[in-house]
């Protein structure tokens, strides 16, 4: 009896820890910081995504987001896979698909796990008509302090999985924009929307900094490992120690970035940023026939989404408030 109790406690904590560390470990080990940098950085190429106007790509991301949000989960799943398949047209397409696919999987696992333990019976009853829970695991009662439901059910996991396709579709399409445009191209496009320069510049610096953030985190984590973190425990626990190292790395990374952010702000302001209300551009990015085709495709996606709703494939999954 005592043994069973201890085993239950141990497994519960392992599920809890690996549930959090799993997606993080997948990003760090399977994709790697280098891989993550690859799918968040621009590389020049000539295929259609690179020739499309960035503005149209922003609209494309918004279209995917709307379609995935207002329709049934499997339309979101189809959109995720379809967008991922277009990665094949990018520079080093096969590798981009591999990395993007792994990232989508880690997003799906992370989101599903993020929702599943918290999904209430009331929510699941709406999501699954005639709801009969299949109990997979019973948590120790004190897990409710963290907001956990008493039991983990198959339906809760499926529910989390369904929700995750919305996130995965949006992230996959947003990455397309980042991988096929330079920050200044996006700056030019957003400027045409009359979005304030300060907001655009923040986005631009963010885009430039994303790869750096992961570089710094990677370095800090590696230094902790080098200094012996986790070396006195089994390799089985490496994901947990990677998570611990990742959390510890956040403060020095942020401080390091903030020190750099000041330089970026000074560099921009001392070069006339916001000197005049209007800004000129040395290279205008035109709207071409290709962009009209792309807009047509987006119209088609929205049309499919609307028809799906009328056919009863609308937003059947409630969101957890």
């Amino acid at each position: 009896m005592e043994m069973n109790y201890l085993l239950n406690e141990l497994i519960s904590w392992l599920i809890f820890l690996f549930g959090i560390a799993g997606p993080f470990y997948l990003i760090l080990r399977a994709i790697g910081i280098r891989g993550f940098k690859e799918i968040t950085s621009y590389e020049p190429h000539t295929t259609f995504f690179y020739r499309m106007n960035p503005l149209v790509k922003i609209v494309f991301s918004m279209t995917v987001m709307i379609a995935a949000t207002i329709t049934i989960w499997w339309i979101g799943a189809i959109l995720t896979f379809a967008v991922l398949l277009t990665y094949l047209s990018l520079r080093n397409g096969g590798r981009k698909l591999y990395l993007g696919g792994l990232f989508a999987i880690s997003t799906i696992i992370g989101t599903a796990w993020g929702y599943a333990p918290f999904a209430t019976s009331a929510t699941l009853s709406i999501a699954f008509p005639g709801y009969h829970p299949t109990i997979l695991w019973t948590w120790p009662s004190y897990f409710s302090v963290m907001g956990y439901e008493p039991q983990l059910t198959l339906q809760a996991l499926l529910y989390g999985l369904q929700i995750s396709f919305r996130t995965a579709a949006i992230i996959s399409s947003a990455l397309l924009l980042v991988m096929t445009n330079t920050p200044s191209q996006i700056l030019r496009s957003l400027h045409k929307f009359n979005i304030p320069d300060s907001i655009i510049f923040t986005l631009m610096v963010g885009m430039k900094s994303i790869p750096d953030i992961f570089g710094y985190l990677d370095e800090s984590i590696k230094i902790q490992m080098m200094r012996g973190l986790g070396s006195s425990h089994s390799r089985l626990f490496k994901p947990v120690y990677m998570l611990i190292a990742g959390v510890s790395a956040i403060v020095p990374t942020i401080i390091h970035l903030l020190r750099g952010a000041k330089d970026i702000a000074i560099s921009a302001d001392t070069r006339g940023f916001r000197a005049t209300k209007k800004r000129s551009y040395v290279d205008e990015i035109p709207i071409t026939r290709l962009d009209y085709y792309a807009l047509g495709m987006m119209g088609f996606i929205i049309a499919v989404a609307v028809i799906s709703i009328f056919l009863g494939f609308g937003r059947t999954i409630p969101y957890v408030a």
């Binding site: 940023f273 916001r274 000197a275």
Partner: peptide, 10 residues
């Protein structure tokens, strides 16, 4: 970047 900020002609 700077000449563009000053809205100079192309």
């Amino acid at each position: 970047f700077a000449p563009e900020n000053f809205n100079l002609p192309r």
